[in-house]
Design a protein around this nucleic acid. Structure first.
Length: 304
DNA sequence: GGTAGACCTGGACGC
DNA sequence: GCGTCCAGGTCTACC
């Protein structure tokens, strides 16, 4: 008999909307089931990996069902990871502040952007989304979980830190990212990444951004994206999709550097929330073409 | 400070 | 089936 947890959520929280708000909800080991409207994932906890299913049978509370029993310590660990993924710490006041500056999202209640259960996983996912198309990102993350993760969980920093570059390159197909991912994992394994400092609201975003740029495999796009994953929305993560959005949706014209300048100016009106405004615009554009994200089927698993 | 080219994978395309 | 081309950010060398 596995453990079950009940997790209270802020009044404005909606599982389907708030999970299916960023591409990571489709990256292994995470999987959204559009039929049952549940999120399945695998956590690698102190006493080993566990598969869990998160459902929202009624507003205001989530039910998490695990495939094994867990100690009280592990239950607390799992609660913290679920809260991180779903950004449950963002209060109604936080959301209201965003909706005041950008009222377009108030009627639908959108604001929370899905992320990973750990910062390490968020950074690896960011690095594996750089310089590659989305199917490649999905493939790399699937292989990382299959090859290195315990029972399909996302690999821990310790496990990745002691992996050989040849294994990462040959079996996980991460290419030139191999040594950068291993070095990053070593930094986490040696506790050289000061997460409380990165999340401290007293620390300015620019300082955190400058620090993130020093991490292996992290450049301007990656650092900006990790900032938003840390809950700091004051900077745009500009990639080719951003430029495409600027041209096709916002109607900006000119050479790419000019477009990016105009884009930054356009989103200045949203101040500390500019990434959220940008991202929800982009996401809404995807949904206008593909349908609501909570109806999207999981990516098919390719035959080996 | 700005720029060019290498780094890899996987998909599209032509033969 | 094979070869070629291209897209995608980061990093380093060079000016």
């Amino acid at each position: 008999m596995g453990s079950r947890l009940t997790i209270r959520t802020p009044a404005d929280f909606v599982l389907a909307r708030d999970v299916c708000s960023y591409g990571y909800f489709r990256l292994p080991p995470d999987q959204w089931d559009p039929e049952t409207q549940t999120l399945t994932t695998i956590f690698d906890l102190d006493d080993g990996p566990t598969r869990l299913v998160i459902a929202e049978p009624e507003p205001g509370a989530l039910k998490a069902r695990f495939d094994r029993s867990m100690s009280r310590t592990e239950q607390n660990e799992a609660r913290a990871q679920i809260a991180r993924m779903l950004r449950l710490h963002e209060t109604e006041a936080d959301i209201e502040a965003f909706h005041t500056i950008d009222p377009r999202w108030k009627p639908g209640g959108r604001a929370r952007i899905f992320r990973s259960p750990t910062l390490f996983q968020d950074i690896v996912r960011t690095i594996t989304s750089c310089n590659i198309t989305w199917p490649g990102t999905v493939s790399m993350n699937r292989r990382l979980c299959q090859v290195l993760g315990r029972k399909g969980a996302f690999p821990s920093p310790k496990r990745l830190a002691r992996t050989r570059p040849g294994t990462l390159r040959g079996r996980c197909r991460v290419g030139y990212r191999d040594t950068r991912l291993i070095e990053l994992a070593r930094m986490f394994a040696r506790n050289e990444i000061d997460e409380p400092w990165l999340e401290d609201p007293q620390v300015p975003d620019t300082e955190v951004y400058t620090h993130l740029l020093t991490l292996p495999g992290v450049g301007p796009y990656g650092a900006s994206n990790i900032l938003q994953l840390l809950g700091r929305y004051s900077r745009l993560a500009v990639d080719t999709e951003t430029v495409r959005h600027a041209k096709t949706v916002l109607g900006l014209t000119g050479e790419d550097p000019q477009i990016i300048k105009a884009l930054q100016k356009h989103y200045d009106q949203f101040g500390a929330h500019k990434f959220r405004s940008y991202w929800l615009e982009l996401w809404t554009d995807y949904e206008s073409r593909e349908g609501p994200a909570w109806t999207w089927k999981p990516h098919p698993v390719p035959k080996q």
